[in-house]
């Protein structure tokens, strides 16, 4: 089956600044594909090139087998985009936001009204159909933005940081809807800087930093192969612990207060450390995407 999105050596520069530096990836039909990375990694720039809002500087990028340079209208007809910032129409009601958007796709009014109702019910917004946008909370706005992205029944749904700034309840509601869409067979492209989001929603993902793709794969495979099964975390570790860990041949990461040992045998490492240091400062847990992410992108602050 041909890929829904295929990028080869995709590059985007702003003046002399490289935002995306020769990335290659392919998104298959029906999968949820994630772009995980810190702020400024180039995720949104990549997404904008995919939905033909930003011209590519060099490389190849095709969506549904069509080049983004050659057929932007044909591509955009089949995708739905939920952007990071709120750009709902504040002058219209909730429902009118959807019907006006449907008109941009040339969907006839009667069909658009049906579609709007269906989507508002799906996103749990039907009760608020006549509300003005400024009356909505951040979570409701985001759900409406996702509903709007679905108005043309797209073959590819692009969600750019769909849960940034939302409270836990809203995040879970958004995730639940995304999982439903995924089950219905939609191809979904998701950017995020939340590990739990990426781990629980994405079939495959890339970790991006400084405009480059660092790794690609299924989240659990990546963690397993790059970090290990478990992580032993030591709080307020004594100054000689890194040296000891190095002597043991363990791979580890450390900041000023904590030290993380990546391992396939957490019990044994824990026991070894507990013999030397207070055991209450030491925990063993399953390795996660966050361990991989911090290992790859470092711990310095961004922006």
């Amino acid at each position: 089956m041909p890929s829904v999105i295929e990028a080869r050596g995709l590059t985007k520069t702003f003046g002399r600044l490289g935002a995306v530096n020769g990335v290659s990836f392919a998104v298959d039909a029906g999968e949820c594909y994630g772009f995980l990375g810190p702020n400024g990694a180039g995720k949104t720039t990549t997404v904008k090139m995919i939905h033909c809002s930003a011209p590519i500087t060099s490389g190849d990028l095709s969506v549904f087998g069509m080049g983004v340079r050659d057929a932007p209208r044909a591509i955009k007809r089949r995708i739905g985009v939920c952007q990071q910032e709120d750009n709902l129409d504040p002058d219209f009601s909730v429902r009118k936001n959807l019907t006006v958007f449907a008109r941009y796709f040339g969907i006839p009014a009667v069909q658009a009204a049906d579609r709007a109702r269906e989507l508002l019910e799906f996103m749990g917004l039907w009760e608020r159909r006549d509300a003005r946008i400024r009356e909505l909370s951040g979570g409701l706005k985001k759900r409406l933005a996702i509903a709007r992205a679905l108005v043309n029944d797209p073959d590819l749904l692009i969600l750019d940081e769909p849960t940034t700034g939302l409270d836990p309840q809203s995040r879970h509601q958004v995730w639940d809807r995304v999982r439903t869409l995924r089950r219905q067979g939609k191809t979904i492209l998701l950017t995020t800087h939340y590990m739990d989001e990426a781990q629980s929603l994405c079939d495959r993902l890339v970790i991006m930093d400084h405009g480059r793709i660092l790794v690609e794969g299924a989240p659990s495979d990546l963690v397993r192969s790059r970090v290990g099964r478990e992580v032993v975390e030591v709080y307020g570790f004594p100054p000689d612990l890194p040296e000891y860990a190095r002597a043991q041949g363990w791979t580890f990461e450390a900041d000023t207060h904590r030290l993380w040992i990546h391992t396939d045998s957490g019990e044994a490492v824990f026991a070894a450390i507990a013999r030397l240091y207070p055991a209450e400062r030491c925990t063993v847990r399953m390795a996660g995407l966050e361990d991989l992410f911090l290992k790859l992108t470092g711990r310095e602050l961004r922006e």
């Binding site: 809002s53 955009k76 709902l88 941009y104 796709f105 040339g106």
Partner: peptide
């Protein structure tokens, strides 16, 4: 920004 993600240029 929203409108140009639809078939409009």
């Amino acid at each position: 920004d929203a409108i140009i993600t639809t078939p409009l240029s």
